[in-house]
Design a protein around this nucleic acid. Structure first.
Ligand SMILES: [Zn+2]
Ligand SMILES: [Zn+2]
Ligand SMILES: [Zn+2]
Ligand SMILES: [Zn+2]
Lengths: 168, 168
DNA sequence: ATTTGGTATGTTATAACATAACAATATGAA
DNA sequence: TTCATATTGTTATGTTATAACATACCAAAT
């Protein structure tokens, strides 16, 4: 409800590696978040908004307790559930992603509805880049010069036996 | 029931869903493990062997502490590091995989050198099936009737900035 | 104006997962 | 033997995550 004329998603570029205008990346993320929450009729409350800002500022994956420490310094919450709830909200609404390999969280590079994503995680500098899960991202990795050493692919859902009994 | 009794890995069957000869699947896994360890000149010690058996018997992903509890009942170790070391050994040698989404471990469906794998995890019954990470596994999922609800793709390695400084 | 229902937050306590650090033991060359 | 290395045993602690319950807030509905 602010700068509603925010572009969908910058380039389909790989956000995370190399240099970029970080301030802009933050304001963009926030304004997109406003729009997404408005559209989904959910509230981007102060805590949730601040956690998103923290992730956007961090420019790396942050653990829940890292986020919590920052919140605590600002008097916005000091107990684990506060951080976990806000992070859960952001993930559920497609504004952030959980990185399973790191037990950590990153702001989404192209926020919108909840979506799958693929990540490239540098073991040397900790940079995390989000890509579209097209192909298997090997192509993407080659394109940007990322050297894959290990790959996690995990799908959760319903197995052939359980699909029939699907109620939920 | 895709149990041809060849010493090599069965075709590219999806192990994990449906019924199969589980006893055989265990003996097969163990004999493959012997071969792999011999080839790699590493020792499949009693604890390591037993942990692999436990995973093969379980037919589902087990947490480290689940494994540890079983070991403890048999007097093979009772402290976390014992389980984590054995699991680490199995993973390093391509005999088991860690499932990040579950913080759990499964026996490899086609043991050999360390390799990447793709997994389908049923949220209803807990079954875990291993597949080749070809394409992005969406095709595989459709073929076997697995209904994907969420997908994790995470590559770890070296980013474009860090590749040049690569020493290791 | 009060009750009621929904959403969000605050708090305690504990569960669940993982590793650092060091001691003890075995194994197998030199 | 003696040394080196690999493995196992043990203590202690660190890290991540959630269950369970209490409170605050706001917005209808009575
Ligand atoms: Zn995203
Ligand atoms: Zn890097
Ligand atoms: Zn495997
Ligand atoms: Zn199932």
């Amino acid at each position: 409800m602010k700068n509603d004329a925010t572009p969908k998603t910058p380039p389909q570029a790989i956000v995370g590696f190399g240099k970029h205008d970080h301030a802009q990346c933050k304001t963009h993320g926030l304004s997109r978040a406003e729009a997404v929450c408005a559209a989904a009729k959910v509230q981007l409350t102060p805590v949730r908004r601040r956690v998103l800002e923290i992730l956007l500022e961090a420019h790396e994956a942050l653990g829940a307790y890292d986020v919590l420490a920052r919140l605590a310094k600002e008097g916005l919450g000091s107990k684990p559930p506060v951080a976990y709830r806000a992070l859960g909200f952001l993930v559920d609404n497609g504004l952030a992603h959980r990185i399973e390999k790191l037990n950590a969280y990153v702001a989404c590079a192209h926020p919108g509805e909840a979506h799958d994503a693929a990540f490239m995680i540098c073991r040397a500098c900790g940079a995390v880049a989000e890509a579209e899960p097209r192909g298997m991202m090997k192509r993407t990795a080659v394109e940007v010069g990322f050297q894959i050493e290990s790959l996690v692919i995990e799908a959760e859902g319903l197995c052939p036996d359980c699909v029939p009994k699907a109620s939920l």
